[in-house]
Design a protein around this nucleic acid. Structure first.
Lengths: 184, 184
DNA sequence: GTCTATACGACGATAGAC
DNA sequence: GTCTATCGTCGTATAGAC
């Protein structure tokens, strides 16, 4: 009857923002209701499984976007150019470091959510490592460089969220191509 | 009458561990009671202000430890040597990256806790920047290098908590002296 | 599909006995 | 100083009207 006042994508994004900022425990149904414009009961209609199902939907959507942003990592062509494309995609996904990171938020939660975040960060690092290997690094070097880049970006976002300074995040994004393509 | 079953320092540390792992909202009085071995009411006797006062005590103690670990940054002597001492102190504080970071946990919370964490990370970066300036960097370079080091360590801990891999954290600690003392 | 109303448990916090 | 018992609130989740 009543028209769907907010489509699935926008709903999931709005929910994701609340979880990212307040964490799993801090994301109360009231907050989610305010953020989405939906009544509490309507939220349960869209996510019958409650908060757990919301997290599943959020993570699925995040994974989808990660894959899109990281696609150049598995393409052919110049590693440096692919790294630049990936950096651009990641920066767009994180909106210039102004958003809280969902993975960080899930890391401050129970074991299930932590391992979920771990898998996301792992697949992210895997993609970056692929570029680094194509650039001539040994698998070991590539994995290390990729993980360090992920850490720099995640840490940059922690700083951005707490102090408002996005410098570290921006430098992490900007230095990504060089760090993945130059050994040492 | 009844002897104090847990002293202030141990109590604050136990409480800090719960807040670090579960975040502010996730740190329920029940969890804190289990972790400390104190009844719920006893917790309120020790922290009459409830969870807010616990966070204050935790942050105070963290600040105290930070200052101790960062003291070499403001001492005299060879910058590289001081950087190594600081790296050792930070690594000991974070127990080799096996612990969740309180600052990350506070970053996934309300505005007050976020800014508190921001101030801690800022003063940390300030101390590291002092070493970098002594090593010959311009203030701007030094601030950037220091903030990047903080980001690398914080990000390394996020990865460690989510995936169990402490490599990135360990590399961040190990590379700290070099990153603060060599321009580039 | 969204709403109002409500059940019910968990949570933060307090009172008072020991 | 710690405990048991309890209050009020807020949380998640559901039922039923529209």
């Amino acid at each position: 009857m009543a028209p769907r006042t907010i489509d699935d994508a926008a709903l999931t994004d709005a929910v994701a923002k609340v979880f990212s900022r307040h964490g799993y425990a801090g994301a109360s149904i009231n907050l989610l209701s305010e953020a989405t414009g939906l009544g509490r009961a309507s939220l349960y209609h869209r996510f019958p499984g409650g908060k757990d199902e919301m997290v599943d939907a959020i993570v699925d959507r995040a994974h989808e976007r990660y894959e899109k942003a990281l696609a150049p990592a598995f393409a052919d062509g110049d590693p440096l150019e692919r790294a630049k494309q990936v950096a651009k995609g990641i920066d767009e996904y994180y909106d210039g470091g102004t958003q809280s990171c969902l993975m960080v938020a899930l890391s401050v939660s129970d074991a299930d959510n932590r391992t979920t975040a771990g898998r996301c960060l792992d697949s992210w690092a895997d993609a970056l490592s692929n570029i680094a290997r194509d650039a001539g690094m040994t698998p070991k070097q590539a994995d290390a460089a990729a993980m360090d880049v992920v850490a720099a970006i995640e840490g940059g976002m922690v700083i951005a969220v707490t102090s408002g300074k996005t410098d570290a995040y921006k430098r992490a994004i900007k230095s990504l191509p060089k760090r993945l393509t130059s050994s040492g």
